[in-house]
Design a protein around this nucleic acid. Sequence first.
DNA 1: TTGAAAGCGCTAACAC
DNA 2: GTGTTAGCGCTTTCAA
Lengths: 357, 357
Amino acid sequence: MEKKNIRIKDIAQLAGVSSGTVDRVLHNRGKVSEEALQKVLQTLKEIDYKPNLIARTLGTKKNFRIAVIIPDPSLDEYWAHSELGVRQAITDWHQYDVQIKTYFFDLYHKHSFEQVTHSVFHAKPDGVVIAPIFYHEALPFLQQCQANKIPFTVFNTNIPEVAPLSFIGQNLYESGRVAAELMCLGNLTEGIFAILHINEDSVNSIHLLDKQKGFEEYVQEKKLPDVKIKVLNIKDTEDPKDTKGIHELLLDDTLAGVYVTTSKGVSFIAELLYQKKQKAPRLIGYDLLPENIKYLEAGTISFLINQNAKHQTFLGVQQLVNYLFLKKEPPQNNLLPLEIITKENLSSYLRSAVPHF
Amino acid sequence: MEKKNIRIKDIAQLAGVSSGTVDRVLHNRGKVSEEALQKVLQTLKEIDYKPNLIARTLGTKKNFRIAVIIPDPSLDEYWAHSELGVRQAITDWHQYDVQIKTYFFDLYHKHSFEQVTHSVFHAKPDGVVIAPIFYHEALPFLQQCQANKIPFTVFNTNIPEVAPLSFIGQNLYESGRVAAELMCLGNLTEGIFAILHINEDSVNSIHLLDKQKGFEEYVQEKKLPDVKIKVLNIKDTEDPKDTKGIHELLLDDTLAGVYVTTSKGVSFIAELLYQKKQKAPRLIGYDLLPENIKYLEAGTISFLINQNAKHQTFLGVQQLVNYLFLKKEPPQNNLLPLEIITKENLSSYLRSAVPHF
DNA sequence: TTGAAAGCGCTAACAC
DNA sequence: GTGTTAGCGCTTTCAA
């Protein structure tokens, strides 16, 4: 019963070679005679060898440098959360020889993204974690990484063409469906449902369309003849020209619900509704930003769908480091659950920390 | 910048003692002179030493044996999920010298619980993970563990008196509030709300009362004069005497919602509602049991609150092993989020696995 | 191409 | 009490 674990030494003994040779075979580092190779492969086939990852890590002195590329957190609450995930990872790994360096780019200027990726590439890190917001600019960079065998994990938005080590994110279409479902709850089945894309950095808009599509299709499937869906794009909430549509919308008595597809936008609407103190439409938004929490607790926002920026980022780094450090292959796709946050379950979410690994 | 990490060796050097002494101080194994102790403590205060957990693990040859005590999974779907968490942990740790043995007891017979705890205690494991369903029987056992310095983590239901290494579970009062909140959504504010405790093993009933209280208080706070709450206890769904009340209830036209506090009970109600094809009251239950999933997808069940048995159990084992193996103190309380599952976000939950550590 | 051996940071046994 | 030392399983260097 007390099966001792099989060690490289054991394999060496069984195969009649030295442990060095076994190691060379295991990592096909070459410099192994055909004969020795066969002997080792043979014994490997016969037994179930699982390397001791802990010992491996200790044996490898290599000090990794990994680069995390995200939007500047000081410009955006959502990305501020994301950065917390990096922070977490940094402190987690600090004591080992893993240096995690964060590179910020300006969410609103693709040029700054290009600059950042250039300097990252120049720094030749051992791995990259990236939120590839700007598709067209990210693509060549990631291809470069690929060519140079720099592994990378991608989160927030995927770029499947470059086959990242892993992708962490959510299914946005389903996210839209969930929002629609929550909107329809309790026979809220007539009037206007508004979909608001607020303060979208234009690059993001493609993804917001996925949410919109999910929302629309759900409503369509429900066959609600008395529901009208209205879509509004608001570039800048500071610009009266842009917000005029919103004010009109909110005055409409038949407005039954508002779905804001961006995390930062919903508190703007909540604020307006809160001020006007009118019969409030149901309001659904994203993420546990401080402002959003405030209005969720006040009851102005009915639901928040949690995109869990912190967790996404943390997982991205985690999986990359595990891969580099422990040679542990992560799952290729990590679609996180679409968490529904209400006034009553909010605190249970705020309490529970990001899982530590 | 390239601060090398501080090793025990470094501390020894700084304090002018040997690494053996430092180790003794760090783990207060005694056999250290007051003088040496002070010198080491002093340098420890001056620097920020973080042990290399990886090296520590490798250095400790001890092979741990840990016992997991849960209800027999073959008797109960909920606990079947729980066991999956143990399985996960077993495979995770198998290759290291951690032997995890599961002990099942009969959920419906406290005597079997006693028997199991006896044999566990007899086996003198290095640690225990337990779902202490039977409070009165669990208490003396855990006190025994305490006295014998066998660390233990507790999940599902807490026994704070014995100060477990950690507790993993949910806040049941809040859980009830969430259920009530979901029940009231969309102005479902008149008629009967039924709270059903179904197939409760009598020991569990105390905890179900927490849920009930949360539900009732939420409704009370909402001040809904047209809502009546009805509480039913159904011991055995096979017993016509017990189920008579249910059938009557379901015939009542003013029945607006049904909240089933146990994970196994809700599919029974769903089945009845499904058959009768009547104007369905809103149905809320617990957990992603196969039957429950079926009725959630069919629309008969509106919401499931996920208690995440698998994750709870997995975490329990995980934290104990981390403590034993890496000497990593877990957080004392782990109240997991109250996850709201609907038809539309279900698949996102089914997809996402238990986080691997 | 191969084997032997040092060493990663820590633990624990063993002399002194 | 204290310092020394031999591992833990793996990687990696260095002779042979």
